[in-house]
Amino acid sequence: MYRVLIVDDMEIMRKLMRRMKFWGSVSGFELVAEAENGADALQVLQEQAIDVVITDIRMPKVDGLELLQQITTLQLCRYVILVSEHSDFEYARKGIQYGAYDYLVKPVNEANLQSVLLKIEQDIPVQNVNNNNQFERQVQTIQTYLKQGKGTEAIAVFTHILDDLRESDKFQHNINISTKKLYGIYKDLASYFLEHFPWLSTITTINRYSEIMDSINWQQDMDKSTFNYCENVVSDYIKEMAIIIEHFQYTTGHNPVIQETVAYILSHIDEEINVAQIAGSVHVNISYLSNLFRQKTKMTIKRFILRVKIERAKILLLENKLKNYEIAERLGYKDYEYFAKVFKKHTGQTLTEFRQDLKKIGE
């Protein structure tokens, strides 16, 4: 069954389409969701897999054309059918240019809608041939969002990829393809993280994910339990990296000086860092940099440095190779007591308590 979402701010129009007799096994298309506007529709699309969107053009909040653009950008659905009044013909034509599959005139005629859905049904096998290209584009979209510091959007695109894998015929007939496609996504993103965010290895558990994925025998036949396991691992991987990038990497909307400052701090975590060093590296005076950073990020440079070092300390505690005072020294703190105090203030636990909790989790 192909899953259909109807979007229209008029209940009577949604009711008219709901009552059409061809839904279900007769046509192979199932009406699974409705939305009153484009904003609600985007929420539905991010929560579940949808094959076809039938949307009105004129709606409050987010109209049909804006919804279409969002769907196309985020690759949330392959087929969008626009519905319009006669007077909206120019809008409908613009929608086709934006990537809509077809358009229908209100009130929607059952035979006309069924005809469009039949064309979609015939087109789907052809589109499935290009699934690899689709996944490549989706991974590129994730990378673009990550580079912009938009972790939430990146996670939403990956969630849609998972929905595609679960719902596709390929998943039902050959789980090997879907599982190994997940592995391919992981490898592509791992290379991307290494190139663009090398500092992730110092304040995240990114290396642990590499060990987990490398421990799987990818030459063997996969089953559903392996797919579910890989799905959980890769989901956790992307979510953790995306959240950290969004949290620490100031990109979208920020001054280039701020970006250079953050990059310097993230690249020198295991050193004693001060504002004078950073100002020299970005070629501005200390006062200007301090004021600009506070204005743009709502925190001082010293506080940001401390946040980064606290995260780094957590990873060093997880690795369990250094003693507490050695961790403080590693991070550039000559006064161990001071570092221990600020660590507890920010985490609610002493270094020893945090280490013990990690040990319990690992048991």
Results as ranks from 00 to 15, higher is better:
M1K: 09
Y2N: 15
L5K: 10
D8F: 06
D9G: 00
L16P: 06
R18Y: 07
Q46N: 11
A49T: 13
D51M: 12
I54Q: 03
V62Y: 00
E66M: 08
I71Q: 01
I81R: 00
Y98C: 01
Y103W: 08
V105E: 05
K106P: 07
K106F: 13
P107C: 11
E110A: 12
N112I: 02
L117F: 02
D123F: 07
V126D: 01
N128G: 04
Q134G: 06
Q138T: 10
T141K: 14
T141L: 01
T144S: 08
K147M: 10
G149C: 05
A154W: 01
I155P: 00
L162F: 03
D164V: 15
D164Q: 15
I177F: 11
K187S: 11
A190Q: 15
F197E: 12
P198R: 08
T202W: 03
R208H: 10
S210T: 12
S215K: 11
M222C: 10
K224E: 14
N232G: 08
K239Y: 07
A242S: 14
I244W: 12
I245K: 02
N255S: 15
I258S: 06
I258A: 01
Q259T: 14
T261R: 01
V262C: 11
A263Y: 06
I269K: 10
D270N: 14
I273E: 00
I273A: 00
A276D: 05
G280M: 10
G280L: 14
V282Y: 07
H283N: 12
V284H: 06
I286N: 04
Y288K: 04
L289H: 00
L292K: 09
K298A: 06
M299N: 14
I301M: 04
I301Q: 00
K302L: 05
E311S: 14
A313P: 03
L318K: 07
N324I: 13
E326M: 11
E329W: 04
L331H: 01
L331P: 08
D335M: 05
Y336G: 03
A340I: 04
F343T: 12
G348H: 02
L351T: 03
E353T: 03
R355T: 07
R355D: 00
D357L: 07
